[in-house]
């Protein structure tokens, strides 16, 4: 395990595999960990790096509780710099982070395989305006007690599940990426995923995981 620094944050990066092929950087789902990709790593022909996002696995929680997809993108960008170039695989929240990073760093990311998982949808396409009340004292107390007691996982992480994910923002990143492989199944996908499907660089990922990785490795 390697320790990386992103400003004041400390990040754990795991090496799950090695080989002569391209580097694969793995971004886990909400409440997951880098080690979730251990099985997948066995099928990759090159080096496999897996990041623990703050508050997950072996990475300390984010001091002050500011978890947003963009802040996680910054964490992943530090891991990318460590690898210099990589292909990405992301699950759930990690898939959304992989999409943004693949759009921002097309010069260093050949492609990204997006898998479903926890935190995929976020808070939807726009703010929920129907909530009749703010946060109740009871819910707030639960949140704060969890935070002060160092509850695991960090209660502030649930905000990643409330982040607004506008489809046109996702689409703009998709349009800037080189290759996006979308893992499809019968489960409903969030609005941003539907928008990404329409991008020129988007393909349906082969259903067989090894075939999907082979397609990504060839990009």
């Amino acid at each position: 395990m390697t320790r990386l620094r992103d400003g004041r944050a400390e990040l754990a990066l795991h090496e799950l595999g090695s080989g002569a092929g391209p580097t694969l950087l793995c971004l886990h789902a909400l409440y997951g960990a880098g080690s979730d990709f251990r099985d997948l790593a066995a099928a990759w022909p090159g080096r496999v790096l897996a990041l623990d996002f703050p508050g997950h696995g072996h990475s300390p929680r984010s001091f002050g509780g500011s978890y947003t997809p963009e802040n996680l993108v910054a964490n992943a960008d530090v891991a990318l710099a460590h690898a210099s170039e990589a292909q990405l695989v992301g699950a759930g929240l990690g898939a959304y982070v992989a999409l943004l990073l693949a759009g921002a760093r097309p010069d260093r990311i050949g492609g990204a395989l997006l898998l479903p998982g926890r935190g995929l949808a976020g808070g939807g396409a726009e703010p929920k305006r129907a909530e009749p009340e703010g946060m109740s004292h009871a819910r707030f107390d639960v949140l704060l007690q969890g935070i002060t007691a160092d509850a695991d996982p960090d209660p502030m992480l649930e905000n990643c599940d409330r982040d607004i994910r506008p489809p046109d923002y996702a689409r703009a990143h998709a349009d800037s990426a080189r290759l996006l492989l979308l893992a499809e199944d019968d489960a409903e996908r969030p609005p941003w995923w539907h928008a990404v499907r329409e991008a020129d660089c988007a393909e349906v990922a082969p259903a067989d995981p090894e075939a999907a990785l082979a397609r990504l490795a060839a990009s």
């Binding site: 992103d6 993108v73 703009a172």
Partner: peptide, 19 residues
């Protein structure tokens, strides 16, 4: 710039300044 360019600019600024 479009959103990905702004994000890249932000990431570059962070790399240069985050310490």
């Amino acid at each position: 710039r479009p959103a990905p360019g702004q994000l890249a600019g932000w990431l570059d600024w962070r790399v240069a300044n985050h310490s």
